[in-house]
Nucleic acid binder design. Structure first.
Lengths: 199, 199
DNA sequence: GTCTATAACCTGATAGAC
DNA sequence: GTCTATCAGGTTATAGAC
């Protein structure tokens, strides 16, 4: 049983509502209510809605990219291990936080410039090492396609969940099993794509 | 040189701004200005912001799913042809309308129930025929995974474009070539995945 | 059908008491 | 630190003239 400070209560409430509804559709009054505090307190602690929002987005970006960068640049981890770990970690993160990807991608579209300092970390290190690992194995796929395929196959079902369900392709209660199943299959699919690029 | 009626001018303006910014961030004043008419006219023709929005979303959903359903249920088209056509058509649609997918998926998340009547069309026909085509070729992949993989590999780069660019993986001017290249590669990747599922 | 002017409402932010 | 009350500004929608 944790006891949260007022500041933490506001942050948790803001994270929940911002990620659910996006920036524009979120009302500071809703955040205050969700946090169980008064509207004035939100401004006392964070100054403005925009300020609070930036803090949330930065944390979410850390979640989403902190996973990727550190070990992708590790040359002692094999390509196969990296694929399996990446799929597994993202599946876990998104299962616990289903609104995260569409929120981040949506807000990034509108305010891409704000978050450069975080994204710059990810960009630097991993690229040359991954590139070498691909080439050394004779795979001719580009690094952009390689990453896009892994991330796309893993993340897209979460983004398209409402669509899958609304279109009747999948039932709500089947979704968790669908995801667990893909968690095993996606690495095999990625290997199949890689092998085909070597032919 | 087409001459648009006032109603059409409003719809075109609304489509542009709604898909760019989403429902909550869009101001009816901006739509009126973009359409070159007065704010009062918007309400004269469409009654309310929400009404106009629903009409736009319905049209966008038609764009996005009208492509899929009719020919997927055609049993005279081979599986390979379906894959190539689907990837090609979606790539064309999204290239001309880059904001479409994230807009639809985002608004669907918040109002999924409103649009069921359109999505129900897509759900009925195509599923059993596709299922047969997969099974007859000995492919053991599920139809949900099959569709999710094609659509995910094709659409995800458009959704993640801002991320790709902000992270430095790709430059803005390289994006069109990146997409044209994937348009050729994705069907081959899908075939590789299918073959692997037969082993 | 199209406009101007304005009503009615909502939202972010602050002043000031406790 | 936390609250109530309120301001200031913006947004949707409508009334009414042309």
């Amino acid at each position: 049983m944790e006891v949260l400070t007022t500041e933490q209560k506001i942050i948790e409430a803001a994270r929940k509502i911002f990620t659910q509804k996006g920036y524009a559709a979120t009302k500071t009054r809703d955040i205050a209510e969700e946090a169980g505090i008064n509207l004035a307190l939100l401004n006392y602690y964070f100054g403005s809605k925009e300020n609070l929002f930036k803090q949330i987005v930065n944390e979410e970006l850390e979640d989403l990219f902190g996973l990727m960068s550190p070990f992708l640049s590790d040359s002692n981890t094999t390509l196969e291990e990296k694929i399996r770990i990446l799929v597994k970690d993202y599946t876990k993160l998104l299962t616990e936080n289903e609104d995260l990807p569409i929120f981040v991608l949506n807000e990034l579209k509108n305010n891409g410039n704000i978050f450069n300092h975080i994204l710059q970390q990810a960009r630097t290190m991993s690229q040359p090492i991954l590139d070498n690992q691909l080439k050394n194995n004779g795979y001719t796929i580009s690094i952009s396609d390689f990453i896009m395929n892994i991330v796309g196959l893993t993340i897209f079902p979460f983004i398209a969940k409402s669509l899958l369900i609304a279109s009747g392709i999948l039932k709500e209660e089947e979704f968790p099993q669908f995801i667990r199943n893909r968690e095993k299959l996606i690495p095999e699919w990625i290997f199949a794509i890689l092998k085909q690029s070597r032919q």
